[in-house]
Design a protein around this nucleic acid. Sequence first.
RNA 1: GCGCCCGUAGCUCAACCGGAUAGAGCAGCGCACUUCUAAUGCGCAGGUUGCAGGUUCGAGUCCUGCCGGGCGUACCA
Length: 563
Amino acid sequence: MQDYLSDSILRALESMGGAPKGFEPEFEQPANPDHGDLSCNAALKLARHFRKAPRQIAEEISTQLIGLPLDSSRISAVEVAGPGFLNFRFSTAHLNEALATILAAGDSWGRSEDGRGRRALVEFVSANPTGPLTVGHGRNAVLGDTMATLLEWSGFDVDREYYFNDAGRQMRILGESVRARYMAHVNPAIETKVIGDEDERLTVPISFPEDGYRGDYIDEIARTLLTKDGADLDTDADPAPFKKAAEKAIFADIETTLERLKIKMDSFFNERTLYDSNRVWEIVEQFREKDLAYDKDGAVWLRTTAFGKETDTVLVKSTGEPTYRLPDIGYHADKLDRGYDLCLDVFGADHIATFPDVIDGIRSLGYEADKVDVVIYQFVTLVRGGQPVKMSTRKATYVTLDELMDEVGEDVTRYFFLMRSPNTHLEFDLDLAKEASDKNPVFYLQYAHARIASILRKAEEVGLSYQEDADLSLLSHETEQALIKELMGLPEVIARAAENREPHRLSNYLREVAVAFTQFYGNCRIIGEEEGLARARMKLALAAGQVLRNGLTVLGLSAPERM
RNA sequence: GCGCCCGUAGCUCAACCGGAUAGAGCAGCGCACUUCUAAUGCGCAGGUUGCAGGUUCGAGUCCUGCCGGGCGUACCA
């Protein structure tokens, strides 16, 4: 439709002396229904070019358009309004055609082809296995999974990947924490000590690390080890077997949590792979060859000043251990080597600083850095009793994702993370969580869906059956027309949400659909109406249910038949 | 100090590539259930979009400078 109007306007402009080259009319859906179904600001943009008042230009375009003539089976009116907008109204025939298109597309309505033939890798969650997933990880997980689905619906072939590192200092401390707990179970009389500051004192076995992991899950892992593997695990004071056991147990938990959120990873990528394959050291050599790396003070430095930074940064510490930059660069090189056309990372705001180095790094290695993109989301602030909760996995002052789901449910949890723009700080009030879940907008959407299902069930009971050839021209009520117009928007909304990496656009849109349906429901009955009209309205209700279901599916939410 | 994000109704947040009268939910007040699901709907009230300039037909949106909050700015990841 936009293409058709765009062509028509350009033709109209030609007979007026022509538009500047490269000029493309822009359209938007006006917020105010009085402004028509589609609005074009071409006359405003061209005021300077034609040296005329925008309104006058708009009048001339309008006259030309009507003379073309404009296809009246699609457009019923052209109006000049405000400072010089051209407002178009769709004909009912066009709306009915759109409704038929939605029903024909069914479960695929909303898919588009922008990304056809292209492969995307979405990397998200990527929490190291040191403890249960927290509410903060939840935002990452849900955003990443939904972004992946949005890309799928935009035509991409998508893989979901979880990147982790089980070799660092954190993991060693994890192993030591489990070992200390295990030893205490083997010998209950073992010497203890008190750690922590005034707020969080804790009595622990003597060998427990000062900055060890304090959560209860550590003790559970230790007890399980004792029951299953006996009391002789600590042969040579080596935390390694404990680390391994902890990693396994924690990863199992993480996967269970992700499953509850309906998240299924296609692959887990261990950072160690990059060392085993020697990849990271090859990259250091490549940087050296390009004079982008050099030795100083026993460390290897990356010449980030060449990328416009104020100082160079360390790539490999004097201990021989790489900093995070090196494996990050190696990992992204690996992803691009695997042939992905788009590598999307989902990062918390605290990782923003690492991103430019990675981009500059892989670009200087000859990769197309434009293929790498990132979704940065701001932190989730937890509020309890009106006070912000400081979160730390080590200190066990966190709220787990599982606890959150236990309290408010999986759908509410997902929706919660999807209803706001990723780059706004999200405040989560735990005290209100449960209460709020009763009034959560997600129920509003699901309720609308369940209500449609209920109507269609009841219609069948009274002998009204769905008929393919119902006469849609009977849908003349303003709430019917408004609903159809709303339903037409899904493909555009999904495409734009994917493009801009903003899933919340879809949740906002679905709410508008639910509002439009509820208004239709309040004004137009199906059962008890004259049969032709009833059948036409059934088709409309069916289409509304389809749009809600498809949208909920993309967001990873259930679309219940009853509530 | 420097970099990124944010500042919109009492609270939590929307506002598509700069568009027309800045919108929802919650909280508050007032109505409406003989109805295909009231987990609802309708109405009222609530705003100098942090402040000051600039750009232009038009600015919550872009630019500059301030103010306030968050996150970074490690031979931590």
